[in-house]
Design a protein around this nucleic acid. Structure first.
Lengths: 114, 114
DNA sequence: GGAACGCTAACGCGGCGTCAAGGTCT
DNA sequence: CAGACCTTGACGCCGCGTTAGCGTTC
């Protein structure tokens, strides 16, 4: 059973050239949250796939470990939240300053113990 | 021979409870750049010590590897550059938006291949 | 000349990607 | 019932902190 823009794990695995077990580990680590069918099959959305592509890039090309990936993803999530929020605002095409604000907040959360 | 606000490796090691070899490895990784005496002894400035304290925090409490630390430090350097630049500007107490801008730039540099 | 520094090489633990075994759904 | 999914556990590589050995500086 297949739907548009939704993929089971084997398809994603082939698309991104990532081992199925690796995808499951990333979910276990809280880096991606695919939905499930009634039979508990993982269903990856387009956004999930983009997220995984970014993770792969950060790990393979940048050498980040999963903790580093989580940090970056948290920043990215903050930026996206701001962007969608700004979509309803008048005129302000780009909320880049606010986006950066979110980034700094994320960083400072981590540095709070400093 | 000791100077004000400048420490040799053994002193920094005791201050931060970090192994001297670890400090040397961090230098090798390009995370800190202490100056040297004529005899090639490492001299850590106050800023170097702050930097090392942050590194320790990121590694021990946050689980980042050195690649992740490098990313965060690059962001921090960008922020500090902006802050010192803003210190000469009139009134603008906080350059937080610009700081965040710098953060985003750092992030996007890494994501350029996405 | 003893203590602290420099350097390079080797050991050891832990994170993470992969493989294996057994059960369930299509 | 064959194939693809699920889960849990184990193996193996490698990054990184530590230790060791030896030469140089204070």
């Amino acid at each position: 059973m297949e739907f548009e823009g939704v993929y089971v794990i084997s398809v994603v695995s082939r698309m991104l050239e990532m081992h199925p077990q690796t995808l499951r580990k990333y979910e276990r680590a809280g880096l991606v949250r695919p939905s499930r069918t009634d039979g508990m099959l993982r269903l990856y959305s387009e956004e999930d796939v983009r997220r995984l592509r970014l993770i792969k890039h950060l790990v393979e090309d940048f050498g980040l470990n999963l903790a580093g990936v989580e940090l970056v993803l948290r920043m990215r999530d903050g930026i996206q939240t701001l962007r969608s929020r700004a979509a309803h605002a008048p005129g302000d095409e780009i909320t880049i300053e606010q986006a950066l604000d979110e980034l700094l907040l994320t960083l400072e959360q981590h540095e709070e113990g400093l």
